[in-house]
Amino acid sequence: MKFFLSIAKVIDAINTRIGKLVTWLTLIVVLVSASNAVIRKVFSMSSNAWLELQWYLFGAIFLLAAGYTFLLNEHVRVDALSQKFPRRVQIYIEILGVVFFLFPACMLIFWLSLPFFYESLVLHELSSNTGGLIRWPVKLLIPIGFFLLILAGFSHLIKCIGFLRGDCPDPQALPVGKTAEEALAEEILAQAQLDAERSTHNNATGKGR
Rank of each mutant, 00 (worst) to 15 (best):
G67A: 09
A152E: 12
L141F: 11
V76S: 06
I95A: 04
I39K: 02
G131Q: 07
I39M: 09
S35F: 15
L174I: 09
G162Y: 06
G153T: 05
P175W: 04
S82I: 13
W111M: 08
F110H: 07
P169I: 12
Y68C: 06
I95W: 02
I61K: 03
A185V: 11
I95V: 12
I39V: 15
P86M: 00
W50S: 11
D79A: 06
V22E: 07
P175R: 06
R135M: 08
R88H: 07
P171S: 02
V32F: 07
F147S: 10
L164Y: 10
G19W: 01
F85D: 12
F163Q: 05
I61P: 04
I39R: 03
D12P: 02
L96I: 15
V122H: 08
W24A: 04
Q193I: 11
S47N: 04
K2T: 09
F163C: 10
E182V: 12
C168W: 05
D12C: 08
I144L: 12
A173K: 14
N202E: 15
Q191A: 15
H75R: 12
A180I: 13
T200S: 13
T130I: 12
I61S: 05
H156R: 13
S127L: 00
R198K: 11
E52Y: 06
Y68V: 05
K84T: 15
N203I: 08
F101Q: 00
V98W: 00
V10T: 15
S128C: 01
E181K: 08
V176Y: 08
L123S: 14
N73I: 01
C160Y: 04
I95G: 05
F43H: 02
L72R: 15
G208H: 15
V89K: 05
A66P: 02
A204R: 09
T16A: 08
